[in-house]
Design a protein around this nucleic acid. Structure first.
Lengths: 97, 97
DNA sequence: TCGACAGGCAAGGAAACACTTGCCTATGCT
DNA sequence: AGCATAGGCAAGTGTTTCCTTGCCTGTCGA
């Protein structure tokens, strides 16, 4: 369900995290924290960012990859592709039900 | 800002309201209430639905038109059109900043 | 092996959110 | 005029959400 995706996108910090990953994919938690602070002025604690990332991962928007003590976060935009189609496509041609 | 749009879409009941308006545009508050109940099993109170509609209107997703004692709600999908483009278009060509 | 680094787990608090109840205004019908 | 209908306003409640603090596990370099 795209239910979690909508919830994930509801928060401003999470959307900024997605922005960051879109600009530079595969960042670690500490990298993301640093960039949120320096580039966006968001000084959320490491745990805060970690919880956001967990939520984004649960929504399928972020995929993680472990390597040693580093954990890299990758953006997956597929859940976003047809998110709003249910409203944008009024009645394309013949759509029953 | 699309900030309010994301917030508006975060709630399941509000998304269902948009579904309803997409299927039949220009419904009144009572109509929406009735359809939420019968078609979706959501028995939210009239005030609850009214507050949701106010939020949707603040987000620019719903436009209202008064006629006598009736208030008709119309769906406006324009705020949804390029909502997720910022992530779906990776780096189209040269994007500074 | 020791310490620094990357990250995780869990409890707690403050604020935002969804929803309800109670009362009020305004329009339309008879 | 009188009443029912459509909707609005405002306060109150319970839940969710965001964020923090404190401590723990695991990995790497000297």
């Amino acid at each position: 369900m795209s239910d979690d995706v909508f919830k994930a996108l509801a928060d401003h910090t999470r959307r900024t995290i997605l922005d960051e990953l879109a600009e530079r994919d595969g960042q670690t938690l500490f990298e993301i924290c640093g960039r949120l602070l320096t580039k966006h002025g968001l000084n959320t604690s490491r745990q805060g960012v970690s919880q956001h990332l967990a939520l984004l991962e649960a929504a399928g928007l972020v995929e993680t990859r472990r390597d040693g003590r580093y954990k890299f976060h990758h953006l997956d935009t597929r859940p976003l592709e047809h998110l709003t189609d249910r409203w944008l496509v009024p009645e394309q041609s013949g759509e029953s039900s």
